[in-house]
Each structure stands twice: as C-alpha cells, then as structure tokens.
Amino acid sequence: MNKAPFFWDSFSDQPEVIKDKTYKKAMRKRYFFDYLKMFFTSLFILPLSIVLMKFFQAKKNEIKDIYGLGVNLDKGDLQQSLIEELGVKNLLIRIPLWDVKNIDSYVKFAKSFNEFSKKEILLNIMQDRENIEDLRLFKQNLQIIFKKFENISQEYQIGTTINRAKWGFFSVQEYLNFYKVAQDLRDEEFKEYKLLGPSVIDFEYYHTIRALFNFEDIKFDKVSSLLYVDRRGKPTNTQYGFFDTKNKIDLLYTLCKLSNKCGDDIYITEVNWPLSNTAPYAPTSEKECISCEDYTKYIRDYFEIAKKSKKIKKVYWHQLIAPGYGLVDNRDSKIVKYPQFYAFKEMVKNG
C-alpha cells in the first residue's frame, strides 16, 4: 500500500490519511447515490433497532474463551513465546493483499503458533485499492490465500475498516461487491470456510446498517466489528448520552437479529487504547492517549462488559506488539511488557 494517494504508516500499523483532497472528494461524489441509500435505510432501521434493542435477549449459554489477540508477521518471531506465556488460543493474523507475493512467509508464521499448542486462527484479509478496483485480481489473490491456508484456518474476515477512505473503500456498495467475490469463491471451492464482515470501525452503525440491510445476494457467516468506544475515556463513557459499550453491543446484536444477511455470532476484531508519550507509534494525537494504568483498567472493563453481555463471541485485542497501543513495547530492539500484558494474561488464566 504505497501507491499514491495511499501510503502505509509502519509506526501505527495503518494507512496514512489521504492527503489528495481532490481525489477523495471526486471518489465520494461518484458514490453519492449509495450514501443516499445508506441515509434512508438508516433513517428507518436505526430508530427501530434502538426501540427493540432491550427486547433481544442474550444467548443462554455463557460464551467460552472470548479472549483473542492480534499478531503481525512484521513484529518478528518473539511473538510465539509471548503468546504461550499469555495462554491465549484465539489469534488474528493480518494478510495484506498487496503482499500476496510473500504469502508463504505468512503461512510459515501462522503455522509457528501451533508448534506448542493448537490455536484458532482468524485471517484478516486487508484490502487495497488495486484489488477493490480489479475484482478479477482480487479473486486470483484470494484463491491463493484460501488454498495456502486450507489446513490452518477456517475463518476469514473479508476486508477491514470499510468506513475509512484511507483503507480503500469509498462506499459500502464497493465493499459488498468485494465481499461477493469472496463469497462466490468460497461457495465454489471452499465450502467449509466461514466469512466475516462487514468490519465497520467505531460507532458508525449507519455503515453497518447499509451492509446488513440491502437486496444484494450476500450473507455474512459471522459479523465482525471494530468496536472502539471512547478514545479519551473509559468503556462506560457514553456517546449521544446513552451509548456506552454495553448499549453499543446491544444495538449491534439487535441489528444482527433483524437482518437476514447474517447470523448473530459477533466478533470484535479490533480494539485498543492509544498510549501517552509514544508518538509516532500512537495511532492518534496525544490528547486521545492514556496512561498504562488507565489502559490496564480499561482492558479489564472492556472484556468484562463483552463477557457479561453474552452477545459477543470473541474479542481480538489489537495487538500483541505495538509500542503505541498494544501489550508489548519493542522499541530499541528491546521487549518491554506493559502492565496491560500481565492484566491480559490474568484474564485468560481466570477465563
């Protein structure tokens, strides 16, 4: 992802904001009518969901082993021993479509985590603009990934962060077209695989609604959400005076129950808080950053809320090694375990 106007920020592990405002404006203008669809669909579905959200009860059985964690190829081979120390069994691995030429390295990396104990691996297929625009290329690349990971993973998140232009999508319709390619390929050749989407980040459920309420021939086997809550505060803080983490989960669960495009299994596939005094590694400005002490409290609170809801099947914390937002700092070629590392370890141990 280093073709203008899309550039990757290796410090914060995400794309840079698109600096070409003319390009961004033109692309959004192209999909004006899709934004209208999103507006009118949300105008009907969102109020209905809010009214009904307290009527949809949680699953009767407690969700087991909710704890997941992201690991990255570029963070090196220290991660395997750290994962064993933490005792976490659910891992998320990013597979960038722009790096398919190195797919064997990702396969080797994924396999390495099973050398000590069996892991459940979710693959996050990260899009780029080239694969979005050329769906034949996307199918070819995805076929390679599906085949290479045939005996390693059964779950694939198709696309990520679809409501941020810097990640490549400029409308939900573009994402639905993208997802349909993956669904068709799965149905043709890899029927045992489970596909996740639509991977909307933050509390922007109008994008989720557009993805879950439409006339397209698609279905998400499981719903993925990057449910950040309050970058500057605790998980019990609210947006719009009412929507704290618990109520955001309740609303998302209600949307899943009302939609015929998905089941009600929900994975939160990315969440964290940015850490103070870690620029340029922090993914936000300093004013949104918090201390390790607060981070440690918030990670416990977030998982506790998700567990008690009984509506979230797995939460994948993002991620193991990341100086600006993760559990471990690897700056200066040193491994420093943040306090939140030990908090996560304790939570996994206690179940």
Rank of each mutant, 00 (worst) to 15 (best):
M1I: 13
K3S: 12
F7D: 08
D9F: 00
S12H: 10
P15C: 04
V17K: 15
T22V: 15
R28P: 10
R30D: 07
F33C: 14
F40W: 06
T41F: 13
L43P: 09
L48T: 11
S49G: 05
I50Q: 03
V51P: 11
K54H: 15
F55D: 08
Q57A: 11
K60S: 10
E62F: 14
I63H: 03
I63C: 04
G68I: 06
V71C: 04
D77A: 13
Q80E: 09
S81M: 12
L82S: 07
N90S: 08
L91K: 04
L92Y: 09
D99S: 05
N102R: 06
V107M: 01
N114D: 07
F116I: 15
K118V: 07
K118N: 05
K118T: 04
I121L: 00
I125L: 04
M126E: 13
N131R: 11
N131I: 06
L135A: 02
L142E: 01
L142W: 09
Q143N: 15
E150Y: 09
I152G: 03
Q154I: 12
Y156C: 00
Y156K: 04
T160Y: 11
W167G: 00
S171E: 05
V172C: 07
Q173G: 14
L176R: 03
V181H: 08
D184W: 10
D184S: 14
L185N: 03
R186W: 07
D187C: 05
E188P: 11
L196C: 09
I201Q: 11
F203P: 01
Y206D: 13
N214D: 07
F215V: 12
E216D: 06
E216R: 15
S224G: 01
V229M: 08
Q239S: 14
G241L: 04
G241N: 01
G241D: 00
T245Y: 12
K246A: 09
K248M: 14
L251R: 00
L255Y: 03
S259C: 00
I266W: 07
L275N: 04
P280R: 08
Y281A: 00
Y281W: 06
P283S: 05
K287P: 06
C292I: 09
C292M: 15
Y295N: 14
Y298Q: 09
D301Y: 08
E304F: 12
A306I: 10
K310R: 14
I312D: 02
W317T: 10
P323K: 04
V328Y: 06
S333D: 14
V336H: 12
V336I: 15
A343T: 13
N350I: 13
